[in-house]
Design a protein around this nucleic acid. Structure first.
Lengths: 142, 142
DNA sequence: CTGAATCCCCCGAGATACTG
DNA sequence: CAGTATCTCGGGGGATTCAG
């Protein structure tokens, strides 16, 4: 439902590769039997989590999103968003103005995964110092 | 507190490198300003999350852990555990028997991060099918 | 403004073999 | 049983350039 303006149309298909990350002798030892593995393989890269967090409040346009995620490159933002869209976590809405405006937001599925992810985010904010200290202590006693 | 049997002792220090993952011209563009980035850099690899989940119930010995995590190599289990230990999430307890028994468990900090991580795990179990379907649908309309 | 295409480097992680 | 040491390779991701 919810007819969007345009379903992105042609994308000149990049490669269709779908890495599979670390198949042992082509046997499909990805984590398809393990839901956590499977989900992490999709969302456990460097940027997906951060993108989801930044979309949780409201839809955001491409460049605004880029500015809000420190250190992300244009390419990786595009790639990450496409991947999240593919997995049904993110919607992409094009307004055919000039210059074009493209807004990204979370789907219901995206909103639902944003909950545990935000918890993790809160944990990170609260405990990163503890981790730092632990690391220093560990490194000292070599 | 809680004097362990042995603090692991000499480990022949590997390299001290601490990758820094993708420093742009050595400028320290890791995510030290962003707690989520910083934590994900430590725990967002292929195996850490799974290890934490598997240690949540009770302490587990090395090989038992290895058996419970499908697809992990001995090396990566060792490396992952060492990293988690370094960050204060995991404890390592050696019983000097023959053969040696080494038990790994979560610290308090580890237990606390295990909570949001488990939520993510539950989400994964509940929603991976939705993700799969979304992916198939997306791939169809190319 | 949003994005695709290329080039290329680095490091994560598997395979294997060896120790206490 | 629980590690460590080497070698190797694929691919994730940055930088850059071109396009609608």
């Amino acid at each position: 439902m919810n007819a969007r303006i345009k379903p992105a149309g042609t994308r000149t298909e990049p490669d269709t590769a779908v890495p599979l990350l670390h198949t042992t002798a082509g046997f499909a030892n990805d984590g398809s039997s393990c839901p956590i593995r499977e989900v992490l393989d999709r969302v456990g890269d460097t940027w997906s989590i951060l993108v989801i967090i930044n979309l949780q409040e409201q839809p955001v346009r491409f460049n605004a999103l880029k500015r809000s995620i420190e250190g992300i490159s244009q390419r990786m933002l595009t790639v990450t968003l496409r991947s999240l869209e593919r997995d049904g976590l993110v919607t992409r809405t094009v307004r055919p103005t000039t210059p074009p405006e493209v807004e990204y937001g979370l789907t219901e599925l995206g909103q639902s995964i944003a909950v545990p992810i935000s918890s993790l985010g809160s944990w990170a904010a609260s405990n990163r110092d503890s981790m730092r200290r632990a690391r220093e202590a560990f490194d000292l006693q070599s």
